[in-house]
Design a protein around this nucleic acid. Sequence first.
DNA 1: ACTTCGATGTATCGGTGCGATATAATTTGC
DNA 2: GCAAATTATATCGCACCGATACATCGAAGT
Lengths: 194, 194
Amino acid sequence: MLEFAVLGLLHEAPMHGYVLRKRLHETLGTFRTFSYGSLYPTLRRLLRAGLIVEEPAEAAVGETTANPGWNQARSGWGRRGKRVYKLTAEGKERFAELLADAGPQTWDDEGFGVHLAFFSRTPADVRMRILEGRRRRVEERREGLRAALARAEEKIDRYTRELHRLGLETSEREVRWLNELIAHEQAEQRGQQD
Amino acid sequence: MLEFAVLGLLHEAPMHGYVLRKRLHETLGTFRTFSYGSLYPTLRRLLRAGLIVEEPAEAAVGETTANPGWNQARSGWGRRGKRVYKLTAEGKERFAELLADAGPQTWDDEGFGVHLAFFSRTPADVRMRILEGRRRRVEERREGLRAALARAEEKIDRYTRELHRLGLETSEREVRWLNELIAHEQAEQRGQQD
DNA sequence: ACTTCGATGTATCGGTGCGATATAATTTGC
DNA sequence: GCAAATTATATCGCACCGATACATCGAAGT
């Protein structure tokens, strides 16, 4: 999922790992954060896979050109210190593939949230399949919680019951929310056809 | 967190990994599931640490004594095949320690949910600290989302905004839910003192 | 009796991500 | 002119997941 987010964000502009992490935090809005402990290894992975490349530091966004001496000290640019990453053609291609994929990862809590951040770039039919998959998923959770609450009502621990109550309300809410989104999508599609 | 849950569940009775996983699923109620890919390694870890021991299969819960031939084939019992795990004194001690700990792990989504499943066994003051820590955590998320929504209202992607809206409502709801739980705890403590 | 199927049961593998920690340069504020 | 905050990169061990591979058992059908 980090791979997906990184690839998506690098479409905006080449960026440092550090800036990337901030943008990540902003676009995902506290719903999800990624640590450096996963970001930097991911960046290296993408680099090895040829999906991104390192770029001379001059091209970075919001860079004050304060001539970093230690930068030139090592083979021209950014060997040590700031590293700016840029999408390659393969990287763009890969992102497009990931965008078009509506697999099960896209309807779990994490995957869904991240994918939604790039929803306006995903094809309308894929959007629909993801939304519906997510709804199925949340409905399952809702039913599971309903069953757990009905099954025991008295027997189970008060705190557990409270947690299940909250979970049930939350899933009910999310299903309603999804229904609205889906309805909106359908309306839009009808509008398109006319 | 799995360690905590396993130790807690084994207080009920000695169990197979398989049964353990089912009980885990039941008590956590779809809010959280652990896969075998984490359960079995965890079991081995606990075994190495001396927090649990293997027990002859006869002692297992709900066991039909169907004399498993392959079981005796290997040095007396359960070397290959079913393995029943039982808490040791150290294991019980460790669980008590974990119960009494109200660290930051206990107020993130995962830790909080798992801990709540054993809340009736945790000391009242620890319960309070966990509840308050969780509230602080959720309030932070709520404020983050409020800020994100206020910051951009028009600029940001429609879908992202919708997700943030849902997240905001969810956090608001959870804060209210926590307030009720906390009020209940306080009332109970006052009752205790009289 | 035969066999097939679903539940029971144990286990490993590669991959993904986290939290803590170390290190250093650069900017900002006093 | 110096301390503190921010920018920046990186690694380590650990926890967990999903996929996958086995093997056994009991029941239900034929």
